[in-house]
Design a protein around this nucleic acid. Structure first.
Length: 492
RNA sequence: GGCGGCAUAGCCAAGUGGUAAGGCAGAGGACUGCAAAUCCUUUAUUCGUCGGUUCAAAUCCGUCUGCCGCCUCCA
């Protein structure tokens, strides 16, 4: 049974959907004004795993996100780059979609754009005025926080507390300094026509209008970074529930920040790594793995040293995937009377169960990865034991083990290519390597160690690792080469 | 100043009442011509501090210390 931590109640709750078998989720996306950084990617990966796990659990998921393509920052950045605001937004929205592919993040079912939903937003603002929750002053429309009794229920603060410690500059035309804009007046020619004159939607209203339009007045999951709890999500709740008179969202999920030396990575602070610069050094897979080793609600400290460790740790899992594939490609020894592997398979199934339980407990990917390593240990022990031979019985069991292993990895979005084949797409290369390996084998048979080692060392220099296993010689392409190939893909 | 969170081995990290997962690094052994990989063993009598509750606490309560987030744009 799935339990999720709900920011609204501060507790882990049993997960029940509005509509049986269907999950409607909305995740706050980004303002498309620049390239994405690792903080954005953590959020995207987090909700991607949640989505994958929900799908694995049998739900049909409608996963919606947004691109904020109208605001001051976009206009300013567009001027800097000599583009129109909409060109700039397109450029960075497309860049984001390219980036998430590198991290194996599934695209949302729909990315809603503010500029394409102005009518809905205007309708919503007008209704809020009608119902007495909002007021217009000089072409600006504000939401009156005092008119909404539950204001503060998500972030756990009261109006009195907030007013006491307010650091918000008092704005003349607001009735209460905490009132927030639903519609902002702008210069002629820059905005959209509305009953209150030309303007732009306020920041919070877009998510409310667009999510309700697509998912209905009440939907299951709304996610985003912890830094959005207040004021963004608090305001979304206020305006949405005031508008519809119904509960807006059942489960509010918030992921922790990515930190650099303990400080939150953020654009405005200037302390951030863009996804693109990180991808020059590490594969998307490695970054993804690293981010998932920490529970999603906790902050995570980012560094290249930590990524190096993650690379080594992930390599252990990848190595097992390759070995398993190689074992399954061996000839079956039908005369073998060795064990059937039944006990081994029981342990595999047990690990599978534990893995699923971990994710059922508020998507605990850190624990799940631990279990994946347990499973790797089981597989390694089994296929590397001295007396191991492949026979009909354990072949079937190992095939099923491979299935389980890949299935679990895929929930985390980890997909492994079989390493020896992954980069070699040239029909010439593979036979050539095999030829060199044959020569080395001959040298070894003649105990010509010098020549054998020379071949191994030279291959290593060009990025091909040769290993002698109990099953014979195996080779694979080293990680760094592959990471570089990834970069080439996105920069070309 | 207000509200909230976190503190677990050399490092990273799970664990929210029943006696400390997992990874990285380190040590020893097996295997190997050597190496790599892999396997086995080993590395916290203890979970920031001081108290309290309980038969039992890393887990609950209080205290202190340190760090972080939000209160302004933010994933």
């Amino acid at each position: 049974m799935l339990k999720v931590y709900n920011t609204l109640t501060g507790e882990k709750e049993k997960f029940e959907t509005v509509e049986a078998g269907k999950v409607k989720m909305y995740v706050c996306g980004l303002t498309v004004q620049n390239y994405s950084h690792i903080g954005h990617i953590r959020s995207a990966i987090n909700y991607d795993v949640i989505r994958r796990f929900l799908e694995y659990s049998g739900y049909e998921v409608d996963y919606i996100s947004n691109f904020t393509d109208i605001n001051e920052k976009i206009v300013k950045r567009a001027e800097e780059e000599g583009l129109t605001p909409s060109e700039l937004a397109d450029k960075y929205a497309n860049a984001f979609l390219e980036d998430i592919r590198e991290f194996n993040i599934k695209a949302a079912d729909k990315y809603l754009r503010v500029s394409e939903n102005i009518d809905e937003i205007i309708e919503m603002v007008a209704t809020l005025i009608e119902k007495g929750y909002a007021y217009e002053v000089n072409g600006n429309v504000y939401f009156s926080v005092e008119s909404f009794d539950d204001y503060g229920k998500l972030s756990g603060r009261s109006l009195e507390e907030m007013q006491a410690g307010a650091r918000i500059a008092v704005q003349e035309d607001k009735e209460n300094p905490l009132d927030f804009a639903l519609w902002k007046k702008v210069e002629k020619g820059e905005g959209w026509d509305s009953p209150w004159g030309e303007g732009w939607p306020g920041w919070h209203i877009e998510c409310s209008a667009m999510s309700m339009k697509r998912l209905g007045a009440t939907f299951d999951i709304h996610g985003g970074g912890v830094d959005l709890i207040f004021p963004h999500h608090e305001n979304e709740i206020a305006q949405s529930e005031a508008y519809s008179g119904e509960r807006f969202v059942n489960y509010w999920l918030h992921n922790g920040t990515v930190n650099l030396s303990g400080e939150k990575m953020s654009k405005s602070q200037g302390n951030f790594f863009t996804s693109r610069e990180v991808l020059k050094e590490f594969s998307g897979q490695e970054v993804r793995y690293f981010l998932l080793t920490r529970h999603y609600r906790s902050p995570i400290d980012f560094s290249y040293e930590k990524l190096e460790e993650a690379r080594t740790s992930l390599a252990r899992i990848k190595n097992t995937r390759s070995q398993l594939a190689k074992v399954l490609s061996l000839d079956i020894n039908s005369a073998s009377r060795e064990g059937s592997g039944k006990k081994f398979f029981e342990r595999v199934i047990e690990k599978q169960k534990t893995f699923i339980e971990a994710l059922n407990d508020d998507f605990n990917t850190a624990e799940a990865i631990g279990v994946l390593h347990d499973l790797v240990g089981e597989i390694n022990s089994y296929i590397n034991q001295k007396e191991f031979t492949l026979n009909e019985k354990n072949f079937a069991i190992l095939e099923e083990t491979e299935e389980v292993f890949l299935e679990l990895a895929e929930i985390l979005g980890l997909e492994f290519e079989i390493e020896s084949d992954s980069v070699v797409d040239n029909d010439l290369v593979e036979p050539l390597i095999n030829l060199l390996i044959e020569l080395r084998e001959q040298a070894r048979e003649n105990k010509n160690w010098e020549e054998a080692d020379l071949i191994r060392d030279r291959l290593k220099e060009i990025g091909i690792e040769v290993t002698d296993t109990p099953r014979g010689v195996e080779w694979k392409v080293k990680e760094k080469i592959k990471a570089k190939n990834n970069i080439r893909k996105i920069t070309e």
